[in-house]
Amino acid sequence: MSTGTSDSGTQTPSGVVEHPVLDGAQTHYTFPTEKLKLRQTQPGKTPLVLVACGSFSPITFLHLRMFEMASDFVRFNTDFEVCGGYLSPVSDAYKKVGLAPGHHRVNMCARAVEHSSWLMVDPFETLNRNEKGEPQYVPTAKVLRHFDHEINTVLGGIEGTDGQKRKARISLLAGADLVMSMGEPGLWAPQDLDTILGEYGAFIIERSGTDIDEALASLRQYEHNIWVISQVIQNDISSTKVRLFLKKDLSVRYLIPDPVVEYIEEHGLFSEPNSNNSSSRTPDVGPGSSESKPTKG
Rank of each mutant, 00 (worst) to 15 (best):
E159T: 15
N276Y: 00
T46K: 15
D79G: 11
H28N: 10
T78H: 00
F73A: 09
D213E: 13
E125F: 01
G288I: 02
I233Q: 15
H19V: 15
G102Y: 00
G102F: 02
A141T: 07
G201M: 04
P185S: 06
R129E: 02
V106I: 14
S14N: 14
H224P: 01
E68N: 09
N152A: 06
T33E: 06
E68R: 13
M66K: 01
M1Y: 12
P135E: 03
K293S: 15
G15A: 05
F245Y: 11
L246P: 03
K167R: 14
S238T: 12
V113P: 02
D177K: 14
G297E: 09
L173K: 10
H103P: 07
G286A: 07
S6R: 13
E34D: 09
V16D: 15
H63T: 08
I151E: 01
V138A: 02
D23K: 05
I229S: 11
D258G: 03
T140P: 03
E214P: 00
R220K: 15
S238G: 02
D236H: 12
S278K: 05
I229W: 04
G54V: 01
Q11Y: 13
V51R: 01
T12G: 01
A215G: 15
V113S: 03
L127F: 08
K293V: 12
Q11C: 04
I212F: 10
H103K: 04
K35V: 06
P123N: 06
D177Y: 07
T41E: 10
P47T: 05
S208R: 13
E134P: 04
E159Y: 09
T126F: 12
T3N: 13
F203V: 01
D236Y: 02
L155D: 07
W188R: 01
A112N: 11
T27M: 14
T10N: 09
D148L: 09
P283K: 11
L178Y: 12
P283R: 05
G4V: 09
G160N: 12
E125W: 01
T126Q: 11
F73R: 11
D148E: 11
V285I: 14
